[in-house]
């Protein structure tokens, strides 16, 4: 696995932002201190960790980072819909559920993409990802639809733009 400089830079940036968010200081002395400490720790960790982190994959990094924010928007919208959906099903006196486990084939190849897709599917309306066998994802659906692949298309497409 090649240690591309971009991967190290991104790892350092993410770790450093996380560190600074955790030790938020408002006075100028503390801020300088935390930036130096954060940069050192992040640099050390970033260089060591970049060996075990998954590869960044193909594609234009800037476009993929922008697409990640688009994905986040879609994801939060779906997540709020999911909660309203659960609220409706739970509060309805007859409980309109029709559960079952269906199989879908996600479009992406990378492991990271598969993981993000499975995780976000769990938080979107009526679905709970259970397992990957080979390349198909098994989803527990609270109300099985006729065409499960069609129902998860928008999310699948959004993740695929970020992690092909």
């Amino acid at each position: 696995m090649a240690r591309s400089p971009l991967k190290i830079v991104l790892t350092v940036l993410v770790l450093m932002v996380a560190w600074m968010m955790l030790t938020l200081r408002t006075d100028i002395d503390g801020l300088v201190q935390e930036i130096i400490a954060g940069a050192l720790i992040a640099l050390a960790l970033g260089i060591f960790l970049s060996g075990i982190l998954p590869d960044a994959g193909e594609g234009n990094p800037v476009k993929r980072i922008l697409m990640f924010f688009v994905f986040l928007l879609i994801f939060f919208k779906e997540m709020i819909l999911a909660n309203i959906d659960v609220a409706f099903r739970v509060l309805h006196p007859k409980m309109p559920i029709k559960p079952g486990i269906v199989e879908v084939k996600p479009g992406m190849k990378s492991d990271m993409g598969k993981m993000i897709l499975a995780n976000s599917i769990t938080l979107t309306p009526g679905t709970l990802s259970m397992d990957y066998i080979d390349d198909s994802l098994f989803i527990h659906w609270i109300s099985v639809e006729d065409d499960p692949e069609e129902a998860m298309k928008p999310l699948d497409k959004a993740v695929k733009e970020v992690f092909p």
Partner: peptide, 16 residues
């Protein structure tokens, strides 16, 4: 009714 449906409700509502 069952574990899987309960997990659905629990995960989504409790995360948000």
């Amino acid at each position: 009714p069952d574990v899987y449906n309960r997990l659905q409700a629990a995960t989504k509502s409790i995360t948000l």
